[in-house]
Design a protein around this nucleic acid. Sequence first.
DNA 1: TGTCGAATTGAAGAAGTCTTCAACTCACCA
DNA 2: TGGTGAGTTGAAGACTTCTTCAATTCGACA
Lengths: 113, 113
Amino acid sequence: MTVPVPLYQAKAEFFRMLGHPVRIRVLELLQDGPKAVRELLAEIDVEASNLSAQLAVLRRSGIVTATREGSTVVYSLAGADVAELLRAARRILSELLVGQNELLAELQKDPVR
Amino acid sequence: MTVPVPLYQAKAEFFRMLGHPVRIRVLELLQDGPKAVRELLAEIDVEASNLSAQLAVLRRSGIVTATREGSTVVYSLAGADVAELLRAARRILSELLVGQNELLAELQKDPVR
DNA sequence: TGTCGAATTGAAGAAGTCTTCAACTCACCA
DNA sequence: TGGTGAGTTGAAGACTTCTTCAATTCGACA
């Protein structure tokens, strides 16, 4: 059917899909429940066509689903685990930021280079 | 000191940093413990200079650290939570892949478009 | 000191992603 | 049927990231 994609490449594509500020914000907003495009637009400072393009990326990856309700389109998270992933990312991220601050402090104490 | 980076942007950068097959493989290999560049090179099919460039990306982000041991350089994970993140990603990923297969089956049953 | 192996860096072109604009679809309602 | 609001799409240029090559650094050792 399809040529099997190596797992590490699928993972890389998955993370790349997450690697955009607007897409992150969308996923975070959707954790509180489904939202219409217009609601997203009200919370994210971006042009409609740009948001649409980012939503298309998320849709293509399968991490969100879109359903039309009358004249508006409502997005929701496709799976429940996304929240957990974002939590793990947040934890690592704060660890990294602390690490960077320590490094900074270190450098200011003893500027070898 | 520095202009505060919005959190969602820091997150996006973090995920973008993960979004490369070679970098994913490196992080997975480092979960078994520190490894010299040459060992990584033996397991990942990539040119030395390319691997070096990807290692530089990981280093800059702070997710790995490098120490020189004699004439070789050894890399290790900077934090312990990386494994957990990769596990969460794997879980979501397999969910998404299953979802895509279901969708595919659906489409083959009833090809509306 | 000279040379070798290990790893990194800089530069340049190729490849990919983002943003923006205009054009379009779709549902709704006068 | 025509018009309007909600979203999406395609195309084009700006911008990033990737890959590759050659040049460089650093330590080991003769």
